[in-house]
């Protein structure tokens, strides 16, 4: 299946449709993101992120694509390797007006294996269009329901114990494909006091959760990246659910819509806040 992707990308490069392909390469056993510009590079080191099996090594390809688009000097078009989660992230970035001209990104889709989908309990383990892999069943993640099953005091004790392990490495933010701000509220001294580990509970994590509203596309990269194994995904997943309930805004969906900040601005009659 890696060959199918390679051939597809080679075709894109050869036709001049894309100036480069943002994918992954295996460099002596280390899988890292790489911008392929020549067909030969694909032959020597192209990877689908396999260490044990396909995709085990995941990177926030949407975020990397955003940086590439924003920082390259010309307005070339680039190919990007996307899974289901990456596609949702790109959709979301587009709705937050981050991608400029979205036509500059050509998605090269790959469907994930069942094993990977199960591991991350992925709600849609394939992009809308893909050149390799097979559609496997969507998986469900019940972590939100598990927390909701607890009473208030148990929830507080649960989260406090989790947050207490935080070493404030910002890994959750740095890996997040939809964290696009140039300056981060989590680094504002006046709001989150510096010099505390764990960071002030619950200010640090709830602040980040609020900023995930209308953004989190449930890719599970944060939880995967967290060295303290805090189930951050559960928190942000709940935030996404709240926004979906209140504003009928589904993160990661395709379409021309705008971010939920625009829902508040354009409809003064909305009274959810007046409660």
């Amino acid at each position: 299946m890696i060959e199918q992707v390679k051939e597809h990308v080679k075709g894109l490069l050869a036709s001049g449709k894309i100036a480069g392909f943002l994918g992954l390469r295996n460099d002596a056993g280390v899988v890292t993101p790489f911008l392929f510009k020549q067909e030969e590079q694909l032959d020597s080191s192209f990877s689908l992120g396999e260490t044990e099996s396909q995709g085990t090594m995941r990177y926030p390809m949407a975020k990397l694509a955003l940086h590439l688009i924003q920082n390259c000097d010309d307005d070339s078009t680039y190919g990007v390797l996307v899974r289901g989660c990456d596609e949702r992230a790109l959709n979301e970035l587009k709705r937050w007006n981050q991608l400029g001209n979205p036509d500059r990104i050509v998605q090269v889709g790959v469907a994930c294996t069942l094993g990977l989908a199960e591991e991350h309990e992925c709600r849609k383990p394939f992009p809308d269009e893909f050149v390799a892999g097979e559609k496997v069943d969507p998986q469900t993640n019940n972590s939100v329901q598990q927390v909701l099953a607890k009473d208030l005091d148990s929830r507080l004790a649960f989260w406090s114990a989790e947050f207490d392990r935080c070493i404030k490495c910002y890994g959750c933010r740095n890996i997040c494909p939809v964290c696009f701000c140039n300056v981060c509220t989590l680094e504002e001294d006046a709001l989150i006091k510096t010099g505390n580990i764990p960071p002030e509970n619950p200010m640090f994590h709830l602040t980040r959760a609020v900023h995930m509203a209308g953004r989190c596309i449930d890719c599970n990269l944060c939880t995967e990246a967290c060295p303290a194994e805090i189930p951050l995904r559960t928190l942000y997943k709940r935030v996404a659910e709240i926004i979906a309930d209140e504003f009928s805004y589904v993160t990661g969906a395709t379409g021309e819509g705008k971010s939920p900040l625009n829902i508040l601005g354009s409809d003064p009659g909305h009274t959810a806040a007046n409660d």
Binding site: W96, N97, Q98, F180, C181, N182, V183, K258, S259, L261, N262, L264, G265, S266
Partner: peptide, 21 residues
């Protein structure tokens, strides 16, 4: 302008149409 990401949230919220992208 050095830190703005252009997400357009402020444009929608401004009641006076005072913000341009």
């Amino acid at each position: 302008p050095d830190t703005c990401c252009g997400c357009l949230g402020c444009v929608a919220v401004c009641p006076y149409g005072a913000i341009n992208f």
